[in-house]
Simulated assay, not measured.
Amino acid sequence: MKRLILSLSLLWASFPLAAQTTCDSVAIEVQFAPFDDSLIIVSATNQSQEIFSYPGFILFNNSGDTLAIGSVNLFGLGQSSSQTLSIQPAFSGTAVGSGVVQLWTNFYDSLHCTFPITGVNLCPDTCVTLYPSFANSGGAMVTGNVSWTLTNSMGQAVGSGTLEMDSLTQEARDSICINPGSYSISFTQGTASSGGQQWVGVSTAVYGGTVPMVMFNGTSETIPFSFYSQCSLPTTVQDIPGKKAVQIYAAGGSIRLNSLDGTAIGAVRLVSINGSLVVSKNFSSETAEIIAADLVPGIYIVQVQHGQQVWVEKVLVNP
């Protein structure tokens, strides 16, 4: 994700110079929450001595509409802090063309800083590291391991591994870099483990919002989750190299697919921008068409399993 460091702009010329210097020591990043499409996360780095007591952030567009507002859940801003902001009805899309982020203190009693923003994309512009995890939060020690497998929305395995806890490590995690999309992760017991309070799930380096973690039942668990569901990158670990074999486009009230290598189109899935499966069909011909008349206008993701490769295209449907 493009790192966003926002500079300070003061609302009032009479604002004290000391406060200006304090605000200049704060840098923030703005992005969607990884697992919750109703939240935006503001991450703040505070290099000043000011703690900004009981802080709250508000995101506005250039017209003054409230796009997202935070709940006060911090005593103050430390060197590194984050706050979740609830997205408001005025927000749409995946970017903020221009606007401001305001930092209020004392339960929104006093406006302290204003950060102007321009052309901010709230989506990742590259894959994001996901951490499959196996942890113990109980008093008794846990020893043993579980295996994990991550699958994308087409049911394809995109990663796997083993997580082990022993007498020295009571929290084990792996890592994999994935793009936004819909996934599920399965955990299966390997070496028998007992005792403690065992948890399995996934997390990221970005804190905020709900994290898909569940208590492990000692046998197997499968956890479905959406990852930056507002964003529309392919749900693969990396782009597939080579010459494109399928042409995908929207035209004349339909979504059309053409095989460019003379073989059958194959399995096609149409997924909405929020990760919901809309169409799933196998085409044995070299051309295919999905009628768009019954679809809600908007952006869709077309996923094609063509031979041994997966091709993904974003299309705008406007029946």
Rank of each mutant, 00 (worst) to 15 (best):
G266L: 09
T263I: 05
V310M: 09
N217I: 04
S229I: 01
T210P: 02
H306C: 11
K244C: 00
K281E: 14
E221H: 03
K244Q: 14
S220G: 11
T210D: 12
V237P: 02
I290V: 07
P297R: 06
T287V: 10
G242W: 00
G266W: 07
E289Y: 04
V296R: 12
D294K: 08
P297G: 02
P224N: 13
P212W: 07
G266E: 07
I248R: 02
V271M: 14
F227M: 14
K244N: 13
G208E: 15
G298S: 13
G209D: 08
N274A: 14
Q238S: 07
A288W: 10
V278M: 00
P297D: 06
Q238Y: 04
I265H: 05
V310R: 12
R256D: 04
L257N: 08
K281P: 06
D239E: 12
S259R: 13
F227W: 00
G275S: 08
I240R: 08
P241N: 10
Y300L: 03
A293F: 09
V310F: 01
Q309F: 03
L257E: 11
I255C: 06
L233M: 11
G218S: 01
V271S: 09
A267P: 03
V310E: 14
L270E: 07
Y300F: 10
V206K: 00
E289D: 02
Q230K: 15
N282V: 14
V302P: 07
V271D: 09
T287P: 01
S280D: 11
P297E: 05
S276F: 13
Y300V: 09
A264L: 04
L260D: 12
S226H: 14
F227L: 15
A288G: 15
V246G: 07
G298N: 13
D239F: 12
I255N: 10
P297C: 02
S285E: 12
E289H: 01
Y207A: 10
S280I: 04
G209Y: 05
V246C: 09
Q305H: 01
G262R: 12
G208L: 00
Q303H: 03
G242C: 08
P212R: 11
S229Y: 02
I273Y: 06
I223C: 13
G266S: 10
Q309N: 15
A293W: 09
